[in-house]
Design a binder for these strands. Structure first.
Lengths: 338, 338
DNA sequence: GAGGTTGATTTTGACGATTCAATTCGGGAT
DNA sequence: ATCCCGAATTGAATCGTCAAAATCAACCTC
């Protein structure tokens, strides 16, 4: 009935359980003839290894938890892709969890992952100072922050978001814009705050440039569109001529908002997004965007985790920071005369 | 060092492991005073249940695998949402796996899930006749097909895709369109084929209506846009005046293609998508779409699975079929004169 | 005070795979 | 013929949790 165990495989092959285990884990030390018999037995019985037993005995799991803020955002799925690719090479499995920017859901997922004694957790936390994370680490689950810079004793991989903000800001200022909108949120999220600080810094250095801030709760298409329509409705003399959106979903929504309101992009409104997801390039007006190496981010995070797991005590936590690139496309490709 | 086990909790509390186990699983039969001591011990030691051991002992897992074709498609994340909600109520965990419409990835995920002895698997299979699925079931892992109708001995939840196709077709024909494009793919995928058959059926019944077919490999925004531009480039007299796209991502891309080519929607081209994802409503031109009850689909699938797991032998496989609704929005809201 | 009830707690194997020390076997060297 | 060696295989212990059966204590009843 139930799936056969190693014991039944052994009996059918006329060997001991030890030999079957050897066959599975160290086939080289098993005699060829025996090997064949065991293989035959496995095939005939339809034996499938029991991961739970393996894990219990070995004391360590082969799965890694990956908790992201939003699975529908291609940035995160690309990231997951990178993590999974490396995991695959090391014969481990990635368990993808969607926190939906909700601390409660996040906590639930962390609890579950800890009960499963996962090898480690890669997470884009809602709040990177959450004491729960530290508690988790203290109890022995390695954690790597993704797309967040760890200050304390944790590994992290992130992208220089301030630089990203500066790149976008400089680009728009050089194109002659003097009223710029920044849209993102919540501003308490570190990444958003950094991008905001970046563009704020360059705006303050420039003469006579005004930056308007718009905060949203969730960075999705719907919210972007709403803000877009709101801004489009402003009188021309105070309305910004350019907008920098903290992610591409917002930017895509914003772009739609412009279309609805009848504003031309980039002539009436230049747009720069963030993440450079595939949609950005394919948008009605191809979107300028600050590119983050999403896949590399995921891959590096997994790398750090594996390093931490393997070298255990010796391990020194590292904070890896990548540089973003500004990709200029049609949505901001317009020189404004002063 | 390593996470403390039930044994250490017991020692510290001065009771036996059995009592701790009772405390965890049947607190009612433990004396209040003891209960307190055990709780104190658990807190002090930071004890966390070991799911692997639990699972091994119980012989059955508390996680369910959910394998979808594309996590970036909101239809599937909504579906996952529904499944997860019900799982949460039953204290089980959902493991989300992305096959990316790739049979190899799908197979890999299935192997992993089987090794983990998951409680069951909900899957939108690439090919619902894949013998691997049957083998899985024979070996004892319950499987429920999602968004696919099972013919053989399996449970399934699906939506009447033929009806969906007919709804879209009738709507467009009644609006006066005489040349309609159907875009989707691969045509070997059952859902796509059904939607295609549905619209084909109503077109054939109508007088003098022509249906053009366009096949794509992957149903994403990029592909939709490409087809859109291709169609827009056709001479007006042969160009379709309406398009029915097999999912909303395609439709959104298609819509962008129209914008690029300077065709007005719905005047020059009416568009109807499928799935009614959130983006559809928020698009530059709000998209008409055939709505599927995604969340309900996920929820029902989980329900069937739980039913199957609980009633074991008595269980009779069921095929649940939901009805889709056509949501008409601006993108197809235009009466064409003959 | 013997026998019977409850109620609370402990004891004792499993569950399936892995590992390691112990054992067997065949053949080569002496 | 005897001994030894290495290769192949075996057997038993173990991981953490759970549940069934066994024990124990306290209290009741006749």
């Amino acid at each position: 009935m139930g799936t056969p165990s190693i014991k039944e495989v052994a009996r059918r092959a006329g060997v001991s359980v030890g030999t079957v285990s050897n066959f599975l884990n160290r086939p080289a030390i098993v005699a060829p003839a025996t090997r064949e018999r065991v293989q035959e037995s496995i095939d005939a019985l339809g034996f499938v290894r029991n991961e739970a037993a393996r894990h219990l005995r070995a004391g360590k799991s082969r799965t890694v938890g990956l908790v992201v803020l939003d699975v529908t955002n291609p940035f995160f799925t690309d990231l997951a892709e990178g993590a999974e690719a490396l995991a695959y090479e090391h014969d481990t499995v990635v368990m993808l969890c969607n926190s939906k920017t909700d601390p409660v859901r996040e906590g639930h997922h962390l609890d579950q992952l800890e009960q499963q004694r996962v090898m480690g957790i890669l997470i884009t936390p809602f709040d990177s100072t959450d004491p729960r994370l530290t508690a988790l680490v203290d109890r022995g689950t390695p954690v790597v922050l993704v797309d967040r810079t760890a200050d304390r004793g944790l590994c992290s991989v992130s992208v220089d978001d301030q630089l990203g903000g500066r790149l976008a800001g400089n680009h728009l200022i050089e194109a002659g814009h003097r009223r710029i909108a920044f849209v993102g949120g919540p501003f308490t999220m570190q990444q958003v705050a950094d991008r905001k600080d970046g563009i704020t810094a360059v705006v303050e250095q420039a003469d006579d440039v005004e930056l308007q801030y718009y905060e949203v709760d969730v960075m999705g298409v719907v919210e972007g569109r709403a803000i877009g329509e709101e801004i489009a409705a402003m009188p021309v003399r105070t309305r910004p001529t350019a907008a920098f959106l903290a992610n591409d979903l917002l930017a895509l929504g914003f772009l739609q908002g412009m279309a609805v309101a009848g504003l031309r992009v980039p002539r009436d409104m230049a747009i720069v997004g963030y993440d450079d997801i595939d949609f950005a390039r394919a948008a009605a007006v191809p979107l300028s965007s600050v590119r983050q190496p999403a896949e590399l981010l995921g891959r590096s995070a997994m790398e750090l985790l594996q390093e931490e797991v393997e070298s255990a005590e010796l391990h020194r936590h590292r904070q890896v920071i990548f540089q973003p690139d500004l990709i200029v496309r049609e949505s901001s490709d317009f020189k404004r005369r002063r």
